[in-house]
Design a protein around this nucleic acid. Structure first.
Lengths: 313, 313
DNA sequence: TCAAAAGTGTTATCCTTACACCCATGT
DNA sequence: ACATGGGTGTAAGGATAACACTTTTGA
């Protein structure tokens, strides 16, 4: 006989603000840590998960969602259970969603705010070369691996030790390795150990309540992967944008620097954007032409995302 | 206040049998239609969804799962609710899983059996050229579209009308379009209409209980996509296999014919397999060398899946 | 000896990568 | 004039797609 459970919905809402990828976070009353917008699913009142999620995000942040997709359903015991009204009625399962917003509008709320996601994953940003956070993380992971060849191989591949190539998509696997290795704060918390301290604590990124940072990592993984096979960046851009702004948006999400000309050539070949003839003068240099996403091609032919032609420096 | 709900787990278990992709189906007592292995999740007894799922699949089919991944969580009202003990306690949510089995072992059960998934999606198999089922589907969709340019464009792109390219990954979107257009049996059932008849009914594929065929379509989409960026085919192969058998397995899943030599060249460049020196004599022609998957490279470097070099005839 | 399937060579073309340079504006 | 960012040309190398042919077995 099945015991009833409570379904929670959490949303990772992403936007670009000043060329940085930001994520909507809330600070529940009485909580020191940030969390994702989160709410219980009411099976009586809501017809679908997605509608329920749109409703409570708007309620908590006064903000309307655009593009939305389901990420994953989290149900493990052992991790700290999410906070939710009604969690005392049984186990809480949380369904994570990814939402993309065309602009980081003001949330009109003191409890919710946009945070750069590099706060939560400082080691994920390779736009300025190898992130400084890895200088603290690498020795910690090597200590954790010790003589265990399997652990060392995993850490090496995921965190690009010894010149191994960086794969920007494996955000979740990296977070889970850090959790396993006790580098991130949540691991210590869930195991009842004393908090991680000093340099390493900073390198591991800010913790979040419950398993929200894991959900955030899932979202970043999904989004970085999706960039390449669906034209999703455009969901994060305003109607008119410059090609440089588009490139900066892609770089902010993927966390890697791109080769300007090759990026543009790929764009051109895919016929994804169209020049508007008008110019954006506030560039700090030569004015840039404004472009728009040719949304109509979605109906005309199968269309993939953007290539990520790396710039190696 | 959140109302309790019941969580159901369903599994799409895939294997290759005689070069065909097959899926594990069960026929619940008193049901005319096939369904997926399905069971309630017990929040008291089960630590994780995945363990729960492995347990009840083994129980229902006496079969142990290998590779497993979560697919999607289905929770819409309006579709026929899944059958489950306890569904009268509230709404039923189902978490779908995809599992890959290295061989289609006997299930030792009369209620569960392997079914080729072309039974459920006859229009998805392009290995012998354009599937016959599309000759019935195309006019039905054109009638449904009528003068609506949006509908026509969607149907054209998804079902490759007028020489548009076939995209094998979009199985779910095709199924959902057929549902919307009332071509598949489940649509008529859920709307209380009279069943689809004749040629078109056959072309639409065998219906399943509840929303199980939608879950199956989700699984096929996911698996076809995953083939290309993770070496998952090998989870479906025995330890030793011939390159032709591998190619047939990929073709059975992707539903498209591949170019033999280009397929092999891609395999070779990726260094995914290794010849064993031994020969498989029962090929019907010249004996073929047996190969094995070099599983160790997964630990040595990031590895993508297989290219699908199409053979067009 | 012939059918059936395994296995190989080769070329044209396209795409990706990597190189460096010119252009238009504000200060 | 020069700093700043916008915007372009081109050639080498590698991957893909398309062509057909040889080899080894069983019947």
């Amino acid at each position: 006989m099945a015991t009833p459970v409570v379904i929670g919905l959490s949303a990772v809402v992403v936007a670009i603000r000043d060329g940085e990828a930001v994520v909507l976070s809330v600070r529940p009353p009485g909580q020191a840590l940030a969390g994702l917008p989160f709410g219980p699913f009411d099976p009586e009142g809501h017809r679908t998960f997605e509608l329920a999620m749109r409703a409570f995000v708007t309620e908590q942040t006064r903000f309307n969602l655009g593009y939305v997709e389901q990420l994953y359903t989290f149900g493990d015991k052992g991790r700290d259970a999410p906070l939710a009204a009604g969690s005392e009625h049984g186990r809480v399962i949380s369904v994570g969603y990814l939402a993309l917003a065309p602009a980081a509008l003001d949330t009109h709320s003191t409890d919710s705010q946009w945070q750069p996601w590099s706060r939560f994953f400082p080691y994920e940003d390779w736009r300025q070369g190898r992130p400084a956070a890895l200088f603290a993380i690498e020795p910690a992971l090597r200590r954790w691996a010790g003589e265990d060849a399997g652990r060392l191989a995993r850490a090496r591949l995921l965190f690009a030790f010894d010149g191994a190539p960086w794969n920007e998509e494996r955000v979740l696997e990296r977070y889970e390795l850090l959790y396993e290795a006790g580098v991130v704060q949540e691991a210590a918390r869930d195991r009842g150990e004393s908090p991680v301290e000093g340099e390493l604590a900073r390198a591991g990124g800010d913790p979040m309540i419950s398993d929200h940072r894991r959900i955030l990592a899932t979202a970043l993984s999904r989004l970085r992967g999706k960039l390449k096979y669906r034209p999703v960046v455009f969901e994060l851009m305003p109607e008119a944008f410059t090609l440089s702004a588009l490139q900066r948006a892609v770089e902010a999400i993927a966390g890697v620097p791109l080769h300007k000309q090759n990026f543009r050539r790929a764009l051109e070949r895919a016929e994804l954007v169209e020049g508007l003839g008008t110019l954006e003068p506030d560039t700090g240099g030569r004015p840039a032409e404004l472009h728009r996403f040719r949304r109509e091609i979605l109906a005309a032919r199968p269309v993939s995302g953007l290539a990520l032609p790396l710039l190696r420096d």
